[in-house]
Computed example of a mutant assay.
Amino acid sequence: MKTLFVGNIAPETTENALTELFGEYGKVRKLEMPRDVFSGKCKGFARIDMEGHEARAATAALDGKTFLGSSLKVRDERPKRKGRRR
């Protein structure tokens, strides 16, 4: 299982639209898309879990693609580092 970080998402994007977009490359196992408390709009990023080979295919196809007027940035999610940064 791989987690993808998707950035630069248009505010009007819905979970269903994003699931459908990434679903073309495999099964979306989990999708987290934070929303603004007051407006209900997307905060501009999401995390998506997919199988490894499906995630790689989605990254290759969708990184830089224009979706709802915004150019998506799709990257592998990097685990947070513990401890102090130097």
Rank of each mutant, 00 (worst) to 15 (best):
V37I: 11
L68V: 00
C42Q: 05
I9S: 03
T19R: 15
E20R: 10
K41Y: 07
V6I: 15
E20M: 01
A55I: 10
A60N: 10
P79W: 01
M1W: 04
D36A: 05
K80M: 13
E15L: 01
C42V: 05
E12I: 08
E77W: 14
P79S: 11
D49N: 13
E54H: 14
T3R: 14
D49Y: 04
E20C: 09
R35L: 13
L72R: 05
F5A: 10
R29D: 13
E51Q: 12
P79Y: 02
E51K: 12
V74D: 00
A57T: 13
L31W: 06
E24G: 03
D49M: 07
K30T: 02
L21A: 10
G7K: 07
K73I: 10
A17F: 01
V6E: 01
V74R: 00
S70I: 00
E54Q: 15
A17S: 13
L62E: 02
R78W: 04
G26F: 08
D36Q: 05
K43S: 07
A57Q: 13
G69E: 06
S71Y: 01
V74W: 01
V6A: 01
G69K: 06
P34G: 06
R85H: 12
F38H: 10
G83V: 09
D49K: 12
L4D: 08
K30M: 09
M1Q: 13
R81F: 07
L18Q: 03
G7C: 06
P11G: 05
R29F: 04
M50S: 12
K65A: 12
P79N: 01
R81C: 02
A10L: 00
R56T: 12
N16L: 07
T13G: 01
C42Y: 01
G83I: 09
H53P: 02
L62P: 10
R75T: 15
R78A: 14
R81W: 06
G40Q: 11
Y25A: 00
M33H: 07
V74E: 09
L72V: 11
D49A: 08
E24T: 15
D76T: 11
S71T: 15
V74G: 08
T66V: 14
F5L: 09
F67K: 08
V28E: 05
T19Q: 13
L31K: 11
R75C: 10
G64S: 05
H53Y: 09
K43H: 05
H53R: 11
L18S: 00
E51Y: 14
D63Q: 03
E51D: 13
P11K: 07
D76G: 02
I9V: 08
G44E: 03
E77G: 01
F5Y: 15
N16G: 05
G83N: 12
R56G: 04
L21S: 03
R78V: 15
L62A: 05
P11H: 04
S70R: 13
L4C: 01
G64V: 03
E77L: 12
F22T: 05
K2D: 09
F45Q: 05
G26I: 02
E32Q: 08
D76Q: 06
E77M: 14
K30C: 02
T14P: 02
A10G: 02
V74K: 02
E12V: 08
P34S: 07
D63C: 05
V28Q: 08
R47N: 09
F22Q: 03
R29P: 00
G64D: 04
F22P: 11
K27V: 15
E32M: 09
I48H: 03
I9R: 00
K30L: 02
A58W: 04
E77K: 14
D36G: 06
K41E: 04
